[in-house]
């Protein structure tokens, strides 16, 4: 039993070694890369965003975000889980389903808040 536990912790220590550089790597993505990247936010799949190519038309254009979301936390909440505001929404729940990390969501919020 003890043996198993120690080998498990050895494995998780190893895993941690591998995870840390990965996370560090993820943090190196720019705010724009997290927002536009097909393997990251891929917000362009559904939204026009100034500066982005081949935008989809499923959601509204993401423009004038400061005017539409005076409170930045509301914008974050929309991205974290859009189903709270609209249970039938098509927009994926980026935070709730772990599609993006908390840090990446902050990056996306910063990026589109500047639009």
């Amino acid at each position: 039993m003890k043996k198993i536990i120690s080998s498990i912790s050895a494995v998780s220590a190893l895993a941690a070694l591998f995870v840390m550089p990965l996370e560090a790597g993820a943090k190196e993505m720019t705010d724009e890369e997290v927002t536009f990247g097909r393997k990251a936010g891929n917000c362009l799949a559904c939204h026009m965003i100034p500066g982005g190519n081949l935008p989809g038309t499923i959601g509204p254009p993401l423009l004038a975000m400061k005017a539409r979301f005076p409170n930045k936390a509301d914008l974050r909440a929309q991205i974290w889980d859009a189903t709270v505001k609209n249970p039938h929404t098509i927009m994926p729940p980026f935070g709730k389903h772990g599609i993006l990390t908390e840090g990446q969501i902050d990056q996306v919020v910063n990026y589109i808040y500047s639009k």
Partner: peptide, 12 residues
């Protein structure tokens, strides 16, 4: 969601 609600719209 895609083939009824969003028909004719663009996804990328």
């Amino acid at each position: 969601n895609c083939h009824i609600d969003s028909v004719g719209k663009k996804i990328r």
